Amino acid sequence: MSHVQVAALLPAWAAASGNGEGFIPPAPADFWHPLFGTSGEWAFTRPMLVSLCVTALVSLFLWFATRRASAVPTKSQFMLEYVYDFVRNGVGRDMIGARDFRQFVPLLFALFMFIWVNNLAGVIPPFQNPTTARIGFPIALTLVVYLTYHFVGVRKHGFGGYFKSLVPSGLPAWIVPAIFVLEFITKFITQPLTLTLRLFGNMFAGHMLLVLFILGGEFLLFSGTAFNAIAGVGSFAMAIIFTLFEVLIQSLQAYVFTLLTASYIHSAIADEH
């Protein structure tokens, strides 16, 4: 955890312990870090800065890895090609299909790289701040996906044909209205909602756990008793374990978001429901 986060959270539990109230765990309000401005609508926050830094780092890596691309790849080119092939073939082609996947590979690759590195920023010094743990970032990413799969669906089937494709052919007429309503809710409400909340919820919960173990360990370590000091060491050990586990979750969530994006695109352009 960065010194900025510690500085923001430390006064809360320090004041409480001084009054004999004990440790106060971090709350969602403790993660509001405006750098410029104070209004929620216009403030430039630390997650925004982290996201800009991550975007610059990813862009720099892509340029460096491809500026002298050759048949015998360098280490950076090999790493990039490995990730690209994973997204291209393991996600794009497998989920969308060999006929249509190529046009969507740039989107899928960009989404995976952006989400993955922004997630990893939660455990990489000096950032240690997963921007996707702020609900605005998952909403913006989901909006891109939402507009994309509806646009390609309408382009493929036509406006009326796209809505008609929500219902499989061959169903009895009496059940068609109910199926249409269920499929409409799924495509237009449930899918974007769950895509947003899955990424946000996992990143926010993981970051809260890390902050809790680190601040709790610091509080116990300096509380003045030997038993609490031992418990504080255990809390720091759990923070290390959860950091390693969080790296796995961060990578998995980037993969899941990209995989579901490909799945929604395939569903929108499929010839049959």
Rank of each mutant, 00 (worst) to 15 (best):
H3G: 08
V4I: 15
V6Y: 15
L10F: 12
A12G: 02
A12S: 14
W13K: 03
A16Q: 08
S17H: 11
G20D: 10
G20Y: 08
E21M: 12
E21I: 08
G22T: 07
G22E: 09
G22V: 07
F23K: 08
I24R: 15
P26W: 04
P28E: 13
P28M: 10
F31I: 03
P34E: 14
T38Q: 14
W42A: 13
R46M: 11
P47L: 09
V50G: 03
L52E: 07
T55I: 10
A56V: 15
L57D: 00
L57I: 10
V58T: 09
V58Q: 05
L60A: 15
F64Y: 14
T66L: 14
R68K: 15
R68C: 00
V72R: 14
T74H: 00
K75G: 13
V87T: 04
R88I: 01
G90V: 02
V91E: 01
V91P: 01
R93L: 07
D94H: 12
M95V: 12
I96S: 02
G97W: 03
R99N: 12
D100N: 12
F101L: 00
Q103V: 07
V105H: 02
P106M: 06
L107Y: 03
A110N: 08
L111R: 01
L111A: 07
F112N: 04
M113E: 03
F114G: 02
I115P: 01
V117H: 01
V117S: 08
L120N: 00
G122V: 04
P125K: 04
P126Q: 09
F127T: 02
N129H: 11
P130G: 05
P130L: 03
P130K: 04
T131Q: 13
T132Y: 11
P138D: 08
A140K: 04
L141F: 13
V144A: 15
V145L: 14
Y146D: 12
L147Q: 10
H150C: 06
V152Q: 07
F159Y: 13
G161P: 06
Y162H: 14
F163I: 11
S165W: 03
V167W: 06
G170Q: 11
A173G: 09
V176D: 06
A178Y: 09
F180C: 00
V181W: 10
E183C: 07
E183V: 01
I185D: 05
I185P: 02
F188P: 00
Q191A: 15
R198S: 11
L199M: 09
N202D: 01
N202I: 03
G206M: 09
H207P: 05
L210M: 15
V211G: 04
L212I: 04
F219T: 02
L221P: 00
L221R: 05
F222Y: 15
S223H: 13
S223A: 14
G224Y: 10
T225L: 05
T225M: 07
F227P: 01
A229V: 04
A229S: 13
A229E: 14
I230E: 13
I230F: 13
A231E: 08
A231R: 11
G232M: 07
V233Y: 10
G234Y: 06
G234Q: 08
F236H: 06
A239K: 06
I240P: 00
F242T: 05
T243D: 01
V247G: 05
Q250D: 09
S251C: 01
S251W: 05
L252K: 11
Q253A: 00
Y255T: 07
L260T: 10
T261L: 05
A262R: 06
S263V: 14
A268M: 07
A270Y: 03
D271T: 11
D271C: 01
D271G: 10
